[in-house]
């Protein structure tokens, strides 16, 4: 284990190496006052370096006691249990929920892309509403963060979808409590809107800032269960000269979002635009931001026109098979495609 792998500043690292402290083990064997003398730095600073070093060596050390063989590791068996208990946000389209295994999963980053007008924003708003369905109705009873980079969020539309959702819940309620004295629930569509935190982002700097800030924001608003970014692409598609920088920034963002999803047990939904790509002699549609970005999300769903019907296709997922299902955008929001009862087609 080399000293150079420690998260230390360049000058401290330089001092360590020139003083002969090249390996971690050499650091473990010294005390802070010795180190301070050798490096000609203050004792406090030396103590900080040792702290960093011991944290690192602790990570690498194999502990035999307790259940954990490796710190921070989890057995596949535990993960299975966790996955089974993990909750999904319904899309309000049962065909789509079927192929997704219940809906958009928490703890995962899901990327949804498609041509203009296919219904990406609609799906985004629908999810922001559906995440608030109370647990009594099989929902999460959470709140939503909607990060709008394009200015395409229409609050009137959100109200429409919220009203439809409230109606559906009332209907469900009356079915469920048909015989018993109707238990009065008061579902206010406006309350749905009150639980949507809307950030309007105008530059890519703000986009990075808001993603950095989310960690703090969510720890203050623990019941946030979905983060929707509509779209992840917009500011990164223009005014970017340095493509390597773009890739790095996007990579950093993806990592932070992934961590957020895991840490707070919430779903992250990224909406993406499409672009054309030259492939084997012809131009094809593909999601924007390039090949390295396509690794960033856990699941990738492409929305496309199949004849006159809207379809969703699972392009990438570690746990679900590749499949497509029809859906429709109605006045109430995302719903099953009504034109026919076509079976879900497995590809």
């Amino acid at each position: 284990m080399e000293v150079s792998s420690l998260p230390l500043s360049a000058s401290q690292r330089g001092k360590l190496i020139s003083a002969g402290y090249t390996s971690l083990s050499s650091l473990c064997a010294t005390s802070s006052c010795n180190l301070a003398r050798d490096l000609k730095i203050s004792e406090n600073e030396a103590a900080d370096i040792l702290k960093v070093a011991s944290r690192r060596s602790g990570l690498d050390k194999i502990e035999n006691g307790g259940q954990a063989i490796m710190n921070g590791a989890q057995t596949a068996w535990d993960m299975l249990h966790e996955e089974e208990s993990s909750i999904c946000i319904t899309t309000s389209c049962s065909d789509l929920d079927d192929i997704l295994g219940g809906g958009i999963r928490c703890k995962e980053v899901t990327e949804i892309g498609g041509v203009p007008g296919i219904g990406k924003t609609q799906l985004g708003i629908q999810l922001a509403v559906n995440v608030q369905i109370p647990a009594d109705y099989g929902g999460l009873g959470g709140k939503a963060i909607y990060i709008d980079t394009e200015g395409s969020f229409m609050v009137e539309r959100a109200l429409q979808i919220a009203e439809a959702c409230a109606d559906d819940m009332l209907e469900y309620n009356s079915l469920l409590w048909k015989d018993s004295q109707a238990c009065e629930v008061n579902i206010q569509p406006r309350a749905f809107l009150n639980n949507m935190f809307y950030f309007r982002i105008c530059t890519y700097t703000e986009q990075i800032a808001v993603i950095n800030y989310l960690e703090k924001f969510i720890s203050e608003h623990k019941d946030v269960k979905v983060v929707i970014i509509d779209s992840i692409t917009f500011h990164f598609r223009q005014d970017f000269e340095d493509m390597a920088l773009r890739t790095r920034l996007l990579g950093g963002m993806a990592l932070k979002l992934m961590n957020l999803a895991k840490r707070f047990n919430l779903a992250v939904v990224l909406l993406n635009q499409v672009t054309t790509k030259y492939n084997e002699g012809s131009f094809q549609l593909t999601l924007a931001l390039g090949d390295s970005w396509s690794h960033a999300s856990t699941n990738r769903i492409i929305l496309y026109w199949n004849g006159n019907e809207r379809h969703a296709y699972i392009d990438k997922s570690p746990s679900m098979r590749s499949a497509s299902a029809p859906y429709a955008v109605t006045i109430k929001g995302i719903r099953n495609s009504t034109s026919n009862c076509k079976r879900v087609k497995l590809m």
Binding site: A158, Y198, A209, Y213
Partner: peptide, 18 residues
Amino acid sequence: AHISEISCPSYQTALSLL
């Protein structure tokens, strides 16, 4: 984290927007 917090625009709920 500090710079991000300061330069991040403040949020609104959809209701207040409406």
